[in-house]
């Protein structure tokens, strides 16, 4: 049991079921292992997602590596990006977790040279598919390859995807991408295969600071609101949620984001859209505008032809 510097014994929370597995080598997969690693029992019919607290991210990229390892995704964007420690550049067909490194700038647009003690001039955020409540990619898919799973996540079925690419511009966050090598759309599956086996998603399990937290969405939302309140009491006035129900990031009919974020700056700073919308919202106005144009052209043509007679 760990002992603190003052000599008192510190209590460490261990799930009671963890005592059933004292050895390093196991006969098989632990049933409902997520209960031990993140206190979440994974059951079909419930809504699961990520809460990414950017104030805890240290930019280690363990999430990126864990994602690539589990999903057998190749390293891409080989070369020097010139973007600090960012070597993946952004989300793509082969990069489903992307850690952004953003250097804060002062009011004049240049780098600040003096900072408060223990504060960093860098913002780090692990970006991922948001698994929107009203997912535009799913609405745009003509083949039904994109579907909502029993865990309320959004996944591309590879054997159904025909590579049409309609989902790519439909995503307001620029997440979905086509791989020209296999001709199919790819994005984060929220480790659908791991969830079916009762395992916590690879990125959340690998995160050493719990910046990425996995769990039931209502539980995560309550935890996130408490964290915002705590940060604001500590003097972080800019702390707010991106993707909370009907809040910033979940505008334009998106409802809420199953993968949501705690930010301390404007979303644009992190490369996130401040007011994303569902493209489906623009179908009715677009159709009406088209019909009105057609009617106007018809009236003009009739007037011209009628005038000649």
């Amino acid at each position: 049991m760990p002992v603190t510097a003052e000599g008192s014994v510190q209590t460490v929370h261990v799930h009671p079921r963890a005592r059933d597995y004292p050895g390093s080598f196991l006969d098989g997969v632990i049933p409902q292992e997520a209960e031990l690693t993140c206190g979440t029992r994974i059951e079909p019919g419930k809504s699961y997602g990520f809460f990414t607290d950017t104030t805890l991210c240290i930019g280690c990229k363990a999430c990126e590596v864990a994602c690539k390892e589990w999903n057998a995704l190749p390293a891409d964007q080989i070369g020097f990006t010139g973007m600090s420690y960012d070597n993946t550049g952004g989300l793509s067909a082969n990069t489903w977790r992307h850690v952004a490194f953003i250097e804060k700038r002062g009011p004049t647009g240049t780098r600040q040279t003096d900072q408060a003690a223990f504060q960093s001039g860098w913002l780090m955020m692990s970006d991922v598919c948001k698994h929107c409540h009203n997912a535009p990619c799913l609405e745009a898919c003509p083949t039904g390859a994109l579907f909502r799973t029993e865990f309320d996540t959004v996944v591309v079925q590879q054997d159904i995807c025909n590579g049409c690419g309609y989902c790519v511009p439909a995503c307001p966050f620029g997440v979905v991408d086509l791989n020209p090598l296999d001709g199919k759309a790819h994005k984060c599956t929220l480790c659908y295969d791991r969830l079916k086996g009762g395992l916590e998603p690879a990125c959340a399990k690998a995160c050493p600071t719990d910046s990425i937290q996995f769990g039931e969405v209502p539980v995560l939302q309550a935890r996130a609101e408490a964290r915002v309140e705590q940060l604001q009491q500590l003097g972080v006035a800019g702390a707010h949620l991106y993707g909370a129900p009907e809040g910033e990031g979940a505008t334009g009919g998106l409802g809420h984001l199953n993968a949501f974020f705690l930010l301390t700056e404007r979303p644009e700073t992190y490369g996130l859209p401040p007011a994303p919308t569902r493209p489906a919202n623009r179908v009715a106005p677009g159709l009406l505008a088209g019909l009105a144009t057609m009617a106007g052209l018809a009236v003009t043509a009739l007037a011209l032809l009628g005038g000649r007679r």
Binding site: N71, A72, P74, K184, H186
Partner: peptide, 19 residues
Amino acid sequence: VQEGRFLLTTDDGRTQLLV
């Protein structure tokens, strides 16, 4: 195997990632 990606372990023990 993950979607259309797979790891092939060759006879000399090396593992290659293929799409």
